[in-house]
């Protein structure tokens, strides 16, 4: 039942190439997924600004359009306003916990260094060990990186809070029971004449194609994230054959093989959206010219637009908050490792200091 503990051990060059490869891979995945999400957000924004699909469903002018009712239900099911308010309330605590671990770690280094300097000034050249300050430079540099990452996170928290403040009123309205939501919607005289018109069915089919394009992206994102490949054998072989690893060339060509087709499919999805959005905007112009626009209809349309974009913002804020919570929790683990490194080296330095002190006092 022997399992070789050193089975996963690889030469340092391979270890470093693996970590650079993983960084490149993470960047590639983030770029592809980010591009699709941005395109979907753009699409949702354009549709919301055109009050689509609500305008097509709202031909009666008094009940809640189906898409708005669906959006309201979706938000309520995800916990509504309370769930994002709770996540927002938790952020400061997560931030403080991380800052405390970092500050404690750096304080350990500072305290040991000040004792080392005191003894150096007392014993002068007889205190012949390396100054703590020199030894702690790399750890302090690492601490500096953590500090700047935390500062950026604080800015991100602020963006999320502002986004929440901008949209919480409308999100709250979406979360209200149907009767209240319907009462808040200014009613407008019915635009029945448009019910059977050709442009309505053209717009409907364009919108369903857009939904399909967006739906496909979910599958594409899952596929992209599911890609795995073990580069270690490739790096080991290169090291064995050439005595060195051309990490960039090997990684880039491998990543291209793994993600090249996905990049094309993402581009195709973007182009499809662009074309469809163009058609939707053209059809919408025709649709709104047919619709008798009057002040009540415009007021109603404004509220419907705000409700639609409130839903999109809710989805975005929720994903931002999940990302933020994960960021802080992941960072805590990394900082705990950093803290261990600091306490290990300080412990070693203290032991060394006590021995040196004893020698000097005896001699």
């Amino acid at each position: 039942k022997f399992t070789d503990l050193f089975e996963k051990m690889v030469p340092m060059a391979v270890q470093q190439s693996m970590s650079t490869y993983n960084q490149r891979k993470a960047d590639t995945v983030n770029r592809l997924v980010g591009t699709m999400r941005e395109a979907t957000n753009l699409c949702n924004g354009v549709l919301a600004s055109l009050n689509l699909p609500a305008a097509l469903e709202d031909l009666s002018g008094d009940s809640i359009p189906q898409s708005i009712a669906d959006k309201a239900r979706a938000i309520v099911q995800q916990g509504g306003l309370q769930s994002i308010e709770q996540l927002i309330r938790d952020l400061p605590e997560l931030l403080t916990r991380n800052r405390e671990i970092l500050d404690e770690s750096l304080k350990m280094l500072d305290d040991e260094e000040s004792t080392d300097s005191e003894l150096r000034s007392k014993f002068n050249q007889r205190w012949n060990r390396t100054p703590s300050g020199d030894l702690y430079k790399p750890l302090r540099a690492e601490g500096g990186n953590f500090r700047s990452v935390l500062d950026k996170a604080v800015q991100a928290d602020q963006v999320v809070r502002e986004r929440y403040n901008t949209h919480c009123e409308m999100i709250a309205l979406l979360c209200k029971p149907e009767a209240e939501l319907s009462a808040a919607l200014p009613s407008a005289n019915p635009a029945k004449t448009l019910q059977g018109s050709e442009v309505v069915s053209v717009l409907r089919s364009q919108l369903s194609k857009l939904e399909e394009v967006k739906k496909e992206r979910e599958g594409l994102e899952a596929e992209i994230k599911a890609v795995t490949f073990d580069m270690s054998t490739c790096f080991l072989t290169a090291l064995a054959q050439d005595g060195a690893i051309n990490e960039e060339a090997l990684s880039v060509s491998q990543l291209d093989q793994l993600y090249g087709s996905y990049t094309q499919r993402v581009q195709a999805s973007l182009r499809a959206q662009e074309g469809l959005l163009g058609n939707v905007q053209a059809s919408h112009q025709e649709f709104s010219s047919l619709k008798q626009s009057n002040s009540e209809a415009n007021d109603r349309e404004e509220v419907l637009k705000k409700l639609a974009s409130a839903h999109d913002s809710y989805v975005e804020i929720t994903s931002n908050l999940k990302e933020g919570t994960k960021f802080y929790n992941d960072l805590t683990e990394i900082l705990l490792k950093f803290q261990n490194k600091c306490s290990d080296i300080v412990f070693a330095r203290k032991t060394e200091r006590d021995e040196l002190l004893k020698e000097l006092q005896q001699s």
């Binding site: 990186n145 933020g324 490792k337 080296i345």
Partner: peptide, 16 residues
């Protein structure tokens, strides 16, 4: 994404 990446902070630098 909104929050900074932790990828490069995860690399455990070997203490000389």
């Amino acid at each position: 994404s909104l929050y900074p990446s932790l990828e490069d902070l995860k690399v455990d630098k070997v203490m000389k």
